[in-house]
Design a protein around this nucleic acid. Structure first.
Length: 318
DNA sequence: AGAATTTGACCCTT
DNA sequence: AAGGGTCAAATTCT
């Protein structure tokens, strides 16, 4: 056996991700085929199996990518700001002065993740989805009229969930928001009331979404509920132009609240394309546009009730 | 008091 | 170097 060189390891990993992604696509196609005989219990069982397969793929991809992040953490070039002599963590400004604000050791372990999976959607109601989010930043974006808000999963600390999302207000009237989800939820929100969607057969016997979150959500051991309390931090802040602390005096958000069944689609909408996988190599999933073809699904959603648009891929909107 | 948000600085990517 | 994403202290809310 050859000792795996870093390059080989990286290549193998890329290939693994590529193959897994293909497998996910195939499983998805199969799932679509299995859906055709509606009401067939056997096919539903098979469908559940396919869902599990897909979940397995998604998890593996996620693991591979997170593993890469972990590996990066050992890269001296990346971790130069962590550990070691505190003096080394200081940065010299243009005048050669040490910068280390208030003597505080910030940016320990700073790393910008290249999320493994990203997808975007446009929605007038950017609140409610199947996870709790905590805002961790806001930034003015060049050319954008409104600041962009950054959210991460509330289970980042306790479960290490790396999912994040960005919310960018695009239009004022009518209000439209571009939401970019990045990374897969690895958390299991136990605080959520487990609910079984008894009437799911009337619409979707099983998940058709390529959204990994949705796939996970179909796991009955976790929860398929979208009825969790809407985090105030998010829903109100969106409609307050990202100023949640002033929200208590207003009731304007309530008129935008969606019914919980639509909330399902808020987090698990009519996905029409595979999420574009990205890696830190950047080219892993860009091999061929034909491979990211749309695997259309016959989502039974009344268009009049659903006015959100999903885009998959990175930075493909602007 | 604990949790969530704000905000400016830091640092990565292009 | 600019723009954008993340960190973390300070601030605010519950």
């Amino acid at each position: 056996m050859e000792p795996p060189s870093p390059e080989n390891s990286s290549t193998n990993r890329s290939q693994a991700i590529r193959e897994l992604t293909r497998g996910l696509e195939f499983a998805t196609e199969l799932q679509n085929l299995l859906r055709k005989p509606a009401g067939d219990l056997e096919s539903e069982t098979a469908g559940e199996l396919v869902t599990k397969i897909m979940q397995s793929f998604v998890d593996t991809i996620s693991i591979l990518n997170s593993g890469d992040n972990h590996r990066n953490s050992h890269d001296p070039a990346i971790t130069r700001a962590s550990g070691g002599d505190p003096e080394e963590n200081m940065i010299k400004d243009s005048e050669g002065n040490m910068k280390n604000p208030a003597g505080k050791d910030r940016r320990r372990g700073y790393k910008r993740r290249r999320s493994s999976v990203t997808w975007t959607k446009i929605t007038p109601s950017p609140f409610i989805d199947d996870h709790g989010w905590r805002k961790y930043g806001q930034k003015e974006i060049l050319g954008a009229k409104h600041p962009r808000s950054y959210f991460r999963c509330t289970h980042r600390n306790d479960q290490g969930c790396q999912a994040t999302k960005q919310v960018q207000k695009m239009e004022e009237d009518p209000p439209n928001f571009l939401i970019t989800y990045m990374g897969l939820h690895t958390c299991k929100d136990l605080s959520r009331t487990p609910q079984i969607i008894l009437d799911s057969t009337t619409t979707q016997p099983f998940s058709l979404s390529f959204d990994s979150n949705c796939i996970r959500k179909r796991d009955p051991s976790i929860s398929s509920s979208s009825f969790l309390p809407i985090k105030q931090e998010e829903n109100e802040e969106i409609f307050k132009d990202f100023t949640p602390y002033n929200s208590s005096s207003s009731s304007s958000t309530s008129e935008h609240l969606m019914p919980s069944d639509l909330a399902m689609f808020e987090s698990c909408g009519p996905v029409t394309k595979l999420p574009v996988m990205a890696s830190d190599e950047g080219d892993v999933f860009s091999r061929s546009p034909a491979n990211s073809y749309s695997l259309e699904m016959d989502i039974k959603v009344d268009p009049s009730e659903f006015d959100e648009i999903f885009y998959f891929g990175e930075g493909g909107f602007f």
